[in-house]
């Protein structure tokens, strides 16, 4: 028994699959088709914690990612920073990734300087926020920061002595932080912040991570991790809550990069599911065809 359609599908050129994937990803981006999400408990817990902290609380923003995972993590970094600025918390940016410093600068430029750089309650460098830049040494750098920030890095990313920055007065180590928010793409990252800073020093920590990394970090939730925001889905959840609480201007699509990326992810997943089902349909049909009939 032969089927021309089955024969055609058996020899399907993979370039058709590539074209399908390109269309599934490109179309939602070009047509601005986004995807919303219902917030999950690990995301809600981080949002509530930032809301609950009194104004001017110290938050360490550890941005341990680079352009490889920026598509997934940069919208998250923007969301967390926006929320902290809206609550007027003091922000301490740092990265233990050598390629992470431009990610911090980009976040500061897009949120702190663009949205909160003017007006009555503007964010001033050295007073309301600061950038420690890159700290070499992976887990050891975190351990050094836990015991003495100035030993780990005596100057900020601009080369100014930490003692000259008013935001650093009364901050000898990471212990003085009210919350650590880590955006993590792998090693070194979330796991190391939990093991070398948050748990030994009893500092609340929340992590935003890539989807694939979430399985490694969920064992720490909810005992050692206050909240866990995973992948684009988590970033959309955070943006949804931000839009509900601060609709002007954060309900605006332009301020919701994760929402727009969610559409592409949704259609890519649909295509993948379709391909798996189709592939298995062909597999079963081939087996049926090969089975000898009596």
């Amino acid at each position: 028994m032969t089927s021309p359609l089955l024969n055609k599908l058996n020899g399907l050129d993979r370039r058709w699959i590539f074209l399908g994937m390109a269309l599934a990803v490109l179309s939602p981006i070009l047509l601005q088709i986004g995807s919303d999400e219902t917030p999950s408990p690990p995301t809600i817990k981080l949002f509530d914690q930032i809301e609950r902290l009194p104004e001017g609380s110290r938050i360490l923003m550890a941005m341990d990612f680079d352009p490889t995972s920026a598509a997934e993590l940069y919208p998250m970094a923007l969301g967390f920073t926006r929320h902290c600025c809206l609550r007027h918390h003091k922000l301490y940016f740092v990265t233990i990734w050598p390629t992470g410093k431009p990610m911090i600068e980009s976040t500061i430029k897009a949120v702190v300087q663009a949205d909160f750089g003017s007006g009555d309650r503007q964010y001033v460098y050295g007073v309301d926020y600061m950038n420690l830049g890159y700290l070499a040494g992976d887990a050891v750098a975190i351990s050094q920061m836990s015991s003495d920030i100035r030993k780990a890095r005596p100057q900020d990313a601009r080369g100014t002595s930490l003692d000259e920055l008013s935001i650093m007065s009364g901050v000898p180590s990471v212990k003085e932080m009210d919350l650590i928010v880590n955006v993590s793409a792998g090693f070194p990252g979330g796991k190391e912040w939990v093991q070398y800073a948050a748990t030994p020093q009893k500092i609340p920590i929340a992590i935003g991570c890539t989807g694939v990394q979430s399985t490694q970090l969920f064992p720490y939730y909810p005992d050692q991790l206050l909240g866990l925001v995973t992948g684009i889905r988590g970033a959309i959840e955070y943006e949804t809550m931000l839009a509900a609480k601060y609709p002007n201007p954060y309900a605006n699509r332009n301020k919701r990069p994760a929402f727009l990326r969610g559409g592409a992810q949704r259609w890519a997943h649909r295509l993948m599911i379709g391909l798996i089902v189709l592939g298995n349909g062909i597999h079963l049909a081939n087996r049926y065809r090969r089975t000898p009939r009596r």
């Binding site: 399907l12 993979r14 699959i17 295509l271």
Partner: peptide
Amino acid sequence: AFYVASAAF
């Protein structure tokens, strides 16, 4: 994304 889609099929 492209290679995973092809492998999934």
